[in-house]
């Protein structure tokens, strides 16, 4: 049986197990940004990670590329625990493919105005990673590669010698994407790549990310707070609230049958661009604001704002339950 199941269920590309990231703020204050989060990402899929500001989605993304060291828990990349690798091992670590972790996993940042070095030309920004990881390349090979990358993201040869301040937000985000792709990664963490862009430009970047995924076989973790975009781009969606995962399901399933009260409220809060529909829709508004993640109580984190909360919700941490194939919810009431 185990032989068969191995064929049917391939090893996940990224496996996150009980990941925690705490920040010690003062002697007796701990900010629990990510608290006991587990999920898997399979090769070639796009996983959307959604939640409101402060829910820990960016911290989770940063732990996956080891920009943060997790407090506890494990992140497995191709079966190898990356949280135990030393700095030198990160560079030389060989998984199943003959390449280092750092060139396999890349990140696209939210703010295209802050994530590009203003003193470097576009050519320098994009070629930096190529030169580091392919020291055997000749100058001509590097230049060819930079040109090819810029072409992929819709920029031209003439842009190579320009500085980032000469570009618009959408173009800068393209440069950020070209830089991430320059080392031929297979897994890219996109941390709100479009939220700083204008609506008409957002579509250009989304289409480009989708096209590149098909052409290069990329795997994405797509972090966003815009649920409409996440639904459009993702295969699976993970909803986070105050450092914990509340619900995880295939994209269509989670939008058709949101089960956790928070997911329901989140979905019904999105303004839909259709006047008749958005005004006739029954909406669940949750009262209050997101509580502070500093020294959280040991209970369901949503209990204080949940319209259906019982005593149990205030006293006990809910366990993750599978209510339909691949649909997981952490709620006492399910």
């Amino acid at each position: 049986m185990s032989e068969e199941s191995k064929v049917l269920v391939p090893e996940p590309l990224v496996k996150v197990e009980n990941l925690c990231k705490f920040f010690q703020i003062s002697r007796n204050q701990v900010l629990k940004a990510v608290n006991n989060v587990s999920f898997e990402i399979h090769k070639g899929e796009t996983v959307g990670l959604v939640g409101e500001s402060g829910c820990g989605k960016s911290t989770t993304g940063r732990c996956l590329v080891r920009l943060y060291e997790p407090t506890s828990g494990h992140v497995y990349y191709r079966g190898k625990d990356i949280s135990t690798l030393s700095r030198a091992e990160l560079k030389t670590f060989r998984g199943d493919v003959q390449m280092s972790f750092q060139s396999n996993v890349q990140m696209i940042f939210q703010n295209p105005y802050a994530s590009l070095n203003p003193r470097m030309t576009v050519g320098e920004i994009v070629s930096e990673g190529i030169k580091l990881h392919h020291s055997e390349y000749t100058k001509q090979q590097v230049d060819e590669r930079v040109e090819q990358l810029l072409k992929w993201v819709g920029l031209g040869k003439e842009h190579i010698s320009r500085f980032s301040h000469e570009f618009s937000g959408g173009q800068r985000q393209r440069i950020g994407i070209a830089r991430a792709l320059s080392v031929e990664p297979e897994f890219v963490v996109c941390d709100e790549p479009i939220s700083a862009l204008d609506v008409s430009i957002q579509a250009q970047v989304i289409n480009m990310l989708k096209r590149l995924q098909q052409e290069l076989g990329l795997t994405y973790l797509f972090i966003a707070h815009d649920l409409s975009v996440v639904k459009y781009i993702s295969d699976r969606v993970i909803v986070m609230y105050l450092g914990t995962v509340v619900e995880e399901a295939p994209a269509d399933e989670i939008y058709a049958h949101p089960t956790h009260p928070y997911t329901q409220a989140l979905l019904s809060s999105i303004p839909i661009a259709d006047p008749d529909l958005t005004r006739s829709r029954k909406r669940i508004t949750i009262k209050g604001e997101i509580p502070s993640p500093i020294n959280p109580k040991e209970c369901c984190q949503f209990a204080d704002r949940c319209p259906y909360a019982t005593e149990q919700c205030h006293n006990q941490v809910p366990v993750r339950k599978e209510i339909a194939p691949d649909h997981f919810v952490s709620c006492h009431l399910v």
Binding site: S168, A203, I206, S228, V229, Y232, L267, A273, D274
Partner: peptide, 24 residues
């Protein structure tokens, strides 16, 4: 029309390509 067709809404089919307004 361009503004409306360039946004992904909840009922946008995954397989349709968004039609961005080209240029700036």
């Amino acid at each position: 029309h361009g503004l409306m067709s360039s946004i992904a809404s909840l009922d946008t089919d995954k397989n349709t390509v968004l039609t961005p307004i080209s240029g700036s």
